[in-house]
Structures are given as structure tokens and as C-alpha cells.
Write a protein that binds this DNA or RNA. Structure first.
Lengths: 109, 109
DNA sequence: CTTCCATTTCAAATCAGGTTGAAATATATC
DNA sequence: GATATATTTCAACCTGATTTGAAATGGAAG
């Protein structure tokens, strides 16, 4: 992942509406949610939701496909993993103190 | 870490000058770098560097202390760890696919 | 083909953040 | 105290992101 890509992902994540959409999509994985459902779940107008979703799609954080009239958005876990990895590896040089946080965050045996 | 804190850290990281400063400070850890050295290393004017450094300090990503005329900035590894953990745990619910990225990023035995 | 529903696009207004350069502060030296 | 260096602060300006609401598009159903 390049610095430019990392910056694009980080600024996409750095917005309350988008971060909440992301959480909603994680909770709904692997099924995904329609644009309308997402809009309601983060209390945004359709046009605002569409704006933010297209930004997230542009950054590769979500994918979307149309079924009839509805557009379903799905989380792209690997894209978020790539951002985390960039922070850990490229920025922090895998510093033990930073890694310790990830280890602690992995209670799954 | 609260959502507001995570958003503050993410938007602080989402800027080329600041991300480069962060990398420089990681490389210089645990010693730190002076404001002037940092400014040169990212090719920024003193005033621009000071502006970005104060944002990073405000977000808790760096600390600073004065020695004579120079102000030395140091990376706060735990703060970055906290952001990563937030993404991993609070956003992605420790999803295996995302965790796999961190594991791969940890070649240190 | 008209109508309805879901979503996106668009232009205008607003807002937040970044850059610039000059001035101010802090500290040391003469 | 005067001067020099390191850094920060400030105000003005610029730029890009976000919001808003209306209009347009895509698709299904009568």
C-alpha cells in the first residue's frame, strides 16, 4: 500500500458518519446493507449517505452491487486490514509497544 | 478510546506532512527530534511544522519538552496502538481477515 | 407508458482545515 | 540591555470537504 492510498483510506475513515457506516457494515457482514438502510442507521439523508458511501467505495473500503432497485454495500475487510498494516509496519516499523495493542485485541484463540 | 478520540487521531494521521513527521519520529525513537529538524526532514516551513506538531500533540500522538531553545518531539507509540486497536476491535469486531494482516505484519518472533 | 420507489447527481451554500508571512515569545550569548 | 536563534502565534487568505434540497436516473409494477 502506498502512502497516497493510506492517506486516502485514513481521511475516509476520519469522519463520524462514515465510521458509523463502517461499523454497521461490519456488524452486517457478510450480508451487507442497502443504501437506504444504512442512511437510516446513521441518521443521514439519502443524498448524504450516497455521498459518503461513494467516498468509501472510492477508497476501496466497501463494495456495492445492485439488486433490482436496491444497492447493497458490503465491507471490504482486507482494505481495513491494509490500513492497519500500513500503520503498524510502514509507520511504526512493527514497534513492540504498538504490536502489543494488537495482540491484546486478539482474544480469539 | 472513544469514537471522538479515534476520529481526532484518524484525522490527525490523514495528512501527508503529519504522517511523514510521524515516520521520522518513529525512526528517531526513543530519542525524538527537534521542531527544526522535523521541519527540514519533511520540507516544511517552521510555522507549518509547528502548526502540524501542535495538532499531533493535541491528539496525543506525540509529546514534547523544551531543552534550552530547542523543543524535542517524541513519538507516543501507545497512542498509535490505541488507534489501531480501535479499528481492529471496535470497528472490525476482531474479524479474522483483518487480524490476519496484523499477524503477517509481525515477523518478530 | 405512467407511476412509484431507491438511489445518485448536481449546483449552491457553508464550513473546516491548511498555508503564508509577519510578528511575538522564549532562551541563550555577547 | 542588545542581538541572535528556535519556535510559536496570529490574521488573512485559499482550498477542499460537507451539507442541502432539488432534479435526474435506474428499475419494477400497474
Amino acid at each position: 500500500m502506498t502512502e497516497a492510498e493510506a492517506l486516502a483510506s485514513l481521511s475516509t475513515l476520519a469522519h463520524a458518519t462514515r465510521l458509523r457506516m463502517l461499523k454497521a457494515l461490519v456488524a452486517a457482514a457478510p450480508g451487507g446493507l442497502t443504501a437506504g438502510t444504512l442512511a437510516k442507521s446513521v441518521d443521514a439523508t439519502p443524498s448524504r449517505a450516497s455521498f459518503h458511501l461513494s467516498k468509501m467505495a472510492e477508497a476501496g473500503l466497501v463494495t456495492h452491487d445492485r439488486a433490482a432497485r436496491e444497492v447493497t454495500y458490503r465491507i471490504e475487510f482486507q482494505a481495513i486490514g491494509a490500513v492497519i498494516r500500513y500503520l503498524l509496519e510502514d509507520c511504526c516499523a512493527n514497534h513492540p509497544t504498538v504490536q502489543a495493542c494488537c495482540v491484546a485485541a486478539a482474544p480469539k484463540s
